[in-house]
Design a protein around this nucleic acid. Structure first.
Length: 877
RNA sequence: GGGCAAUUAGCUCAGCUGGUAGAGCACAUCCUUGACGUGGAUGGGGUCAGCGGUUCGACUCCGUUAUUGCCCACCA
């Protein structure tokens, strides 16, 4: 049944309706099916705290393109969705929310807090997931998982216990990064270093029993002097050899500290003397270990000074800094302040300055685990796209340090360690009945929870049921590709790789496909604080999901950042409208029965466009396989708009408008066939409009379960491709000449096409109606010579022919002469260039034969054209 | 301090394995032709950042400089 479409495409009438249809039809759901090859992608689980932002939109559009393509190609495509509990990010939000009600964590207690947190989860946990529907994401929603699900939590416990058993998880007192704001430890990856202007204060300490002798040093953190336990110099520093072994006095506390020698100290930096504070600096910690120095912790968890700071106890760290400087000044022990640029570690969540503190924490020993992850990359088992990020991946693994996994938070997986009064620690998935050593039944579980990335590291297999050996796990795992932004390469990607290798003996994915950041029109990073964030749903509202998706993809390369703004989305919207109208046009001309045509019935134009579509299908498929999605989108875009709409449809019109035309059905068949091919290739990018058109065209089933176009040698028409190129060339030349003379399209002209080549004459004759339709010609005469053509006719030379248009009354002879002269100049230049190249024996000797042959052909052609134009110029009176 | 990118038309960006540069927007002229003015036709505009090198030939490979951006890093 023939249907009419509106003149404009309105996504509002389409998107929600189709999405509901897809859900009802169950097209997103992937079941284990040994008869099909699985293709799996795990969603990078969004935090339950947030709203969908433009980065999610890009990420999930990319994934959806891959998934939809593979699904159409016949793979059993599973896109597993889910969310991340995002320990600290969520806990901070919940605490803020509680504060509005005047309630604190301590008020509620652990159980009360968790209850409230789950309430938060119930309320907001699905926000982003639901917003993904709007984008058209074809996730298998029936399989939605959450990192704190029962199954995933079980996986976390299993992993913790196994790693502990193997000795990879240990508990120890180490220097860790402490956030005084969030009051928790954080991992190295969570510390951001930013270069900032900082003070660099120089002080001196007196030396015991050596009047008028001082040790002078500098620090960016004077408050840590309260924890100084030594002064170090380089053992080869002759200036200070006599001081090594002596005792310096830390004046405020009257603490006696040794002067030691250590290679770490650089002789030529500063005074060559360094204060050593093992409890508050990573380097100093190591030096302390080497020299058996005590650890003096001077700081409370909230950043105030503790009892070890003498009279500074209770004072904030920065107030202490100021006071200490003043106090040293008063004692004449302050030397000077320098302004330097220094990289200070800040917590990536809250931005407050991180303090290295000594704490008893849980760690994962990384050295052994990292090795296979590194090997997988080096042996090219793991492919990183774009490849440059592979180096970043490798560099991180080569320099990896142990991973601090305990967090002083409640929202998360509680560490399965149980303490007995006797000192015994049990690590087990469930609370042990009694202590295995002393039999005491009163075991107390560790208060801390795990780093949020500990659970997301297991995501590719925990979501499929691991540690249970489910059939889903066997079938869908390992996944095919992990698609995400490079900023979580260290946090997440690397940890999934080593976890996968350790627990499943397989890489969790074969490819890592990394994309860039979405920026605003000025190229700034989008952020809430800058107020330049774009709500993707706003674009969906204004232009539709397809337009947003397409604007995020077209013209972008893998890993590259992209700017997004209205113009771009409008461009995409216009493209959708173009597609829509091409379909509308075709449907208007379609009869009640579907058009039918055999290959023999097809004209050159039909074969030409079919051949292009055929090649494009192969090209685009390859681009998608290589994650060159921007290139793929670009190719279909210009095919559909330039070749199909602007050329083919226009060529088909005269045939459609003539009911008697014997090739009318062939044209209709071709139009439908090529449109469908284009729609299919576009469907992964713009799922809604393509399905709407496809089904309106008469298909009962959604395009998303149709077959992906494949290259078909039967549809390769090389000869017709060049034939139509000749015709296009002629049309362009005529249009060009007419535009030059300002001849309106309404004024038709007779066109003479002159060529000595019989085959070319046949082509032009058979395509005369195209030239008439496309180049405003009233009549096309194809002939072997110029016989009968007025000398003053406008003449144009193209490689395949000479074209004449008798426009005598319109032609300004002088202008025409000038135009031809310019043409001659252009051709002479070409001839000169090609001839020079061919006269160069280096070129003819060394260049491949086909290249030389091509150049010779060009030379012949240009010379021929030049001669023709020269003759025309002479002919003008 | 290292590492990695980018530098192509006025603007935003494509350009795979080396063979005389492309798109969108903007601009100019024209067209209300029976799908679309969210359209069509034609045109102007680039020594592909600079300098060296490899090559018959380089936007494309190598080196180097400059500018910009990102990542990593315990120099007190």
């Amino acid at each position: 049944m023939k249907k009419e479409l509106d003149t404009r495409y309105d996504p509002k009438n389409v998107e929600d309706r189709l999405y509901a249809n897809w859900l009802t039809a169950g097209h997103f759901h992937a079941k284990v099916d040994e008869g099909k090859t699985p293709y799996t992608i795990m969603i990078p689980p969004p935090n339950i705290t947030g709203q969908l932002h433009i980065g999610h939109a890009l990420n999930n559009t990319l994934i959806d393109i891959l998934i939809r393509t593979k699904r159409m190609q016949g793979y059993n495509a599973l896109w597993m969705p889910g969310t991340d509990h995002a320990a600290i990010a969520t806990e901070v939000k919940i605490v803020e929310d509680m504060a509005k009600d005047g309630v604190s964590k301590l008020d509620l207690g652990r159980d009360g807090f968790m209850e409230r947190a789950w309430g938060w989860y119930d309320k907001y946990g699905s926000t982003i997931i639901n917003q993904l529907h709007k984008l058209g994401c074809s996730c298998d929603w029936e399989r939605t998982r959450f990192t704190m699900d029962e199954g995933l939590s079980d996986a976390v416990l299993e992993v913790f216990v196994r790693l502990h058993k193997k000795g990879f998880i240990y508990r120890g007192e180490r220097l860790i990064n402490w956030c005084t704001q969030c009051q928790t430890t954080i991992s190295d990856a969570e510390v951001e270093h930013e270069e900032k202007q900082a003070g660099f204060w120089h002080f001196k300490y007196p030396v015991k029993d050596m009047p008028d002798t001082f040790v002078q040093f500098a620090t960016t953190r004077p408050e840590t002097m309260l924890g100084d336990v030594a002064i170090a110099v380089n053992p080869n520093d002759e200036r200070y050899t006599h001081l090594v072994g002596k005792i310096a006095i830390m004046p405020i506390l009257d603490r006696e500290i040794p002067i030691i020698a250590d290679d770490y100290v650089k002789i030529d930096f500063g005074t060559g003397m360094v204060k050593i504070t093992p409890a508050h600096d990573f380097n100093d910690f190591e030096i302390g270990q080497r020299h058996n120095l005590p650890l003096i912790n001077i700081m409370n968890d909230d950043g105030t000074i503790n009892e070890n700071g003498g009279c500074y106890e209770g004072l904030d760290r920065y107030d202490t800094r100021k006071r200490i400087i003043t106090e040293f000044e008063e004692h004449g022990l302050f030397v000077k302040k320098e302004d330097i640029v220094n990289a200070v570690g800040e917590h990536d969540r809250c931005g407050s300055v991180v303090e290295p503190l000594i704490k008893l924490q849980w760690f994962v020993a990384m050295e052994t685990l990292a090795k296979p992850a590194l090997d997988a990359y080096r042996n090219e088992k793991l492919r990183v796209v774009p490849s440059r990020f592979g180096k970043v991946y490798a560099h991180w693994l080569e320099n990896i340090r142990d991973w601090c996994i305990s967090r002083q938070l409640w929202w998360g997986h509680r560490i399965p360690a149980y303490y007995c009064d006797c000192g015994e620690i049990a690590v087990a998935k469930t609370t042990p009945d009694k202590c295995s050593k002393c039999g005491n039944a009163n075991l107390v579980q560790d208060e801390d929870s795990l780093d949020t990335w500990f659970s997301s590291a297991l995501w590719p297999f925990s979501t499929l049921g691991w540690p249970k050996e489910t059939e889903e796990l066997k079938y869908f795992y390992p996944t095919n590709v992990l698609c995400t932004a490079p900023d979580i390469l260290f946090f997440w990607v690397i940890r999934m790789v080593f976890s996968g290798l350790e627990f499943t003996d397989q890489l969790p994915f074969k490819d890592v496909f990394l994309h860039g950041l979405v920026r605003d029109e000025q190229g700034r990073k989008m952020s809430k604080s800058a107020g330049n964030g774009i709500d993707p749903l706003d674009y969906v509202e204004r232009y539709g999901a397809d337009a947003l998706r397409f604007s995020l993809i077209v013209g972008n390369s893998a890993g590259g950042d992209l700017r997004l703004y209205d113009d771009k989305v409008e461009q995409a919207r216009n493209f959708l409208n173009k597609i829509w109208n091409s379909a509308r046009f075709i449907m208007m001309n379609l009869g009640d029965t579907p058009p039918n045509a055999d290959i023999e019935d097809l004209t050159a134009a039909d074969r030409w466009i079919i051949s292009l579509a055929n090649k494009m299908a192969a090209d685009v498929t390859q681009n998608i396989d290589n994650y060159e999605l921007g290139v793929a989108a670009d190719k279909v875009y210009s095919f559909m708009w330039d070749e199909f709409c602007d050329w083919y449809i226009e060529m088909a019109k005269p045939r459609l408008y003539n009911a008697e035309d014997p090739t009318r059905d062939a044209a209709l068949w071709t139009l439908t066939y090529v449109l469908k091919t284009g729609l299919k290739l576009l469907h992964p990018f713009i799922p809604f409009i393509t399905d709407e058109i496809y089904t309106t065209l008469g298909s009962d089933a959604s395009i998303m379960v149709s077959e992906w176009p494949k290259y078909d040698e039967n549809y390769n028409f090389a000869a017709e491709e060049t034939e139509i190129e000749h015709v296009k060339e002629a049309v362009r030349a005529i249009r060009n000449a007419r535009a030059n003379m300002n001849v309106p399209p309404s004024r038709k002209a007779k066109v003479f096409v002159v060529t000595g080549d019989l085959a070319l004459r046949d082509i032009f004759k058979s395509c005369d109606k195209y030239i008439m339709a496309l180049a405003s010609a009233s009549e096309v005469a194809v002939q072997p010579s110029k016989a009968g053509i007025d000398d003053n006719a406008v003449s144009i030379v193209i490689p395949s022919a000479e074209i004449f248009m008798p426009f005598a009354e319109l032609v300004d002879i002088e202008k025409e002469k000038a135009r031809l002269a310019k043409e001659i100049e252009k051709l002479e230049k070409e001839v000169g260039r090609v001839t020079a190249k061919l006269n160069n024996t280096c070129f003819t000797d060394k260049a491949p034969a086909n290249v030389v042959e091509e150049e010779k052909e060009k030379e012949r052609k240009y010379k021929e054209m030049l001669a023709a134009v020269e003759q025309q110029l002479r002919a003008l009176k």
